[in-house]
Design a protein around this nucleic acid. Structure first.
Lengths: 246, 246
DNA sequence: TCGACCCCTTCTGTATACATTCGGTGGGGT
DNA sequence: ACCCCACCGAATGTATACAGAAGGGGTCGA
């Protein structure tokens, strides 16, 4: 993967003098993918500004394309577009985070229950291989890859469930969860899930939809619990933090 | 509401010679709203082309704004954007329609059950007044308004439930349902629901979440059943339709 | 010294000009 | 008569030029 765009990048890399590549259409797709990945992987953190000119020169295109991509990201709730101010990586509030998790519990529990009724051994195998990759990333303490794979696992569940509409919802929710984690996770914690993903697979193997939904609900509450803790720490009370010396 | 844009409108209405109104920002919001309404109200039907130039002149803005609006509508699944071909009002397939209803059952049943736990008499009153308006539209056989109000009812339920994320999902699903109805409803039918909306309110009055969810599920299945019928009629078999004369 | 106002820079918002692609049409060849 | 190819028009895709807003810094005045 070539250079991920940082916010104020060394912009003096012309990259394509307008005649290098045929670049006709589908360029914005690639650029969207790169910025999306950079946000999801926490290479660009919440509230960071996404300046149009900087991105345009970084990717070697005009602001037109960048604006299109930014608007798409805004609709995906990964970017806040503030009129006359610019684009910023979204910074979901605590309340918003709560609602995202509530929505995930609703949607994903339904999906996993539905999936249990139709899942094939083949599909379970695919999920298991994702789980194995996740375990590998855990072993190598590759935090970024693990977060990525954890999201992929949920997304694969949604895909296999066979409802494209709801899969779209899950994709958005998983992305937003990644932002929430970037904002609110306590730095040390999160040896989370992993075994819970395994539990979900077990329930699917037994074709026990109710159990699968129960495990999923527990799993999501678990993730949220690890994060909601950050509710307090974020409100720094300066008067207690910096006590008068007197 | 001023002139709704039709596809190939009388484009010779300059409307604003670039100096009439201050128009700085939030114009696209208005244009989005107008096109959105035109699609939802079936003034523009599925598969109709939305030509950029025609819309631009109709609204007195440049293609830039129109393109922005079209892309937003595309993300909302109301418009299909075909590269190098243009924008068309979305034409959801039968399978897509099925999935939209399945998603609605999932999401809205959860929401209404959640709402039952927190709803106030005031809020029930607001729902009741929407129901009354709907009854009025039914009495006056104002089909368009009735469809609109029916959607509003579901959207209001989602709003009151207090989860903005899921409310967004419902909004998208209700919009798409409107497209589906435009495509697949049998022309004569649909004296549907109405009483079922009333049933939902009754369940909420009793604060009976389980019942409310049950009624909602039944309601949505009912709507879908009236439409899925169109599955057959759409496959016209010419060899039976045009029998040889002899 | 402090505050208010104005200019100036920098960025976003919009319009316009240019490039490219697609489909249709007409002419020529087989 | 049919098919193929090349041109042409129309609409989309992209870049650029221009206008407007917001924030900062500096200067002038009290």
């Amino acid at each position: 993967m070539p250079s991920v765009p940082k916010t104020a990048e060394s912009a003096d890399k012309p990259s394509r003098p307008t005649a290098a590549r045929k670049r006709t259409g589908q360029t914005d797709e690639r650029i969207h993918g790169e910025i999306y990945a950079a946000i999801i992987n926490h290479q660009i953190r919440p509230a960071m500004p996404l300046q149009e000119d900087a991105l345009a020169t970084a990717f070697g295109v005009s602001r037109t394309i960048i604006r299109k991509v930014l608007q798409r990201l805004a609709h995906e709730k990964l970017v806040d577009l503030i009129p006359n101010k610019g684009a910023f990586v979204a910074k979901p509030s605590i309340e918003e985070a709560r609602q995202v998790f509530e929505a995930r519990r609703g949607v994903e529990c339904i999906l996993v229950a539905k999936l249990a009724a139709t899942v094939t051994d083949d599909e379970i195998g695919r999920l298991a291989s994702l789980l194995a990759e996740e375990a590998d990333a855990l072993a190598r303490t590759d935090r970024k890859r693990r977060l990525q794979l954890s999201g992929d696992f949920h997304l694969e569940l949604a895909t296999l469930a066979g409802n494209a509409v709801m899969r779209g919802f899950v994709q958005e929710l998983v992305s937003r969860t990644s932002l929430i984690i970037a904002l609110y996770e306590s730095p040390g914690a999160v040896p989370c899930s992993q075994s819970e993903h395994s539990d979900i697979i077990d329930a699917l193997k037994r074709r026990d939809g109710a159990a699968a939904a129960r495990v999923m609900e527990h799993h999501l509450r678990h993730i949220e619990a690890q994060i909601e803790l950050a509710d307090q720490p974020l409100r720094v009370d300066f008067s207690t933090l910096f006590k008068p010396v007197n």
